[in-house]
């Protein structure tokens, strides 16, 4: 019982950290910091999954934690960093419009997510039921991050962060997804990053920049 109580406290802290990182992603201007934040988000995800696995004694979840560690903390940040270096985009910082207003919008999203999650968390019986709201908020915030960005890499990171949120939600609500699905998603992510990386090169070839507003000129007149 005592063990479980401590685990709950720790999980709450981790969930709060997750939320915090989403806000940091929303407000940071630098590409490389965005990647670092993504790495931290993956680390938190790994820790919390491992904790749940430990508390519930589920071997499956250990596997998924290990997968998280490998993919989201080590592989993807490495690939993204490599991409940024190859593209020479380290210095391509964003010009964000009115950060306080963006944060306020983010806050409203959090309220929405928390409000929506309240009835769900009553139904869920897992020890992480309180964090469903946070997972939902992370998804929405990552979506907002994607909307607010104009650089291609930043958008991809937003997309990846959204997947983190989904994963977190799954872990909170149902002790994770079945192994097959998880493996599939992991593979999807890897492939997506590779394909998008190829796209980046193409976009830069074409427009000499990774700014996505150049794509607006592709519409038919």
């Amino acid at each position: 019982m005592l063990k479980s109580h401590f685990v709950i406290e720790l999980l709450k802290l981790l969930a709060a950290g997750m939320l915090l990182i989403s806000f940091a992603m929303l407000s940071t201007r630098r590409i490389q910091r965005l990647i670092t934040l993504y790495m931290w988000q993956g680390a938190i995800l790994f820790l919390s999954t491992a904790l749940v696995a430990y508390d519930a004694g589920l071997t499956e979840l250990y596997f998924s934690a290990a997968l998280t560690l490998l993919l989201k903390v080590i592989a993807l940040p490495f690939i993204l960093n490599w991409l940024v270096r190859r593209l020479g985009a380290q210095r391509e910082n964003e010009r964000l419009a009115h950060i306080p207003a963006t944060m306020l919008a983010g806050l409203l999203l959090v309220i929405l997510a928390f409000g929506l999650a309240q009835p769900i968390s009553v139904l869920a019986a897992t020890i992480m039921r309180h964090t469903i709201g946070i997972a939902l908020a992370v998804i929405l915030l990552s979506f907002l991050t994607m909307i607010m960005r104009r650089k291609a890499i930043a958008q991809v990171i937003g997309f990846l962060a959204m997947e983190n949120g989904l994963f977190f939600a799954a872990a909170s609500a149902t002790y994770g997804m079945p192994m097959v699905i998880e493996l599939g998603i992991a593979l999807d992510l890897l492939v997506a990053v590779f394909i998008l990386g190829i796209f980046f090169f193409q976009i830069r070839e074409q427009f000499d920049s990774l700014d996505l507003h150049h794509l607006e000129s592709l519409k038919e007149e």
């Binding site: 709450k12 709060a16 915090l20 306080p100 944060m103 309180h130 964090t131």
Partner: peptide, 20 residues
């Protein structure tokens, strides 16, 4: 921006408390 961040922290604390 700095103080908006401070505000954000405080409000997040409030919301997290209300949620969990």
């Amino acid at each position: 921006e700095f103080l908006a961040l401070a505000f954000l922290f405080a409000v997040l604390g409030l919301l997290v408390h209300l949620l969990m």
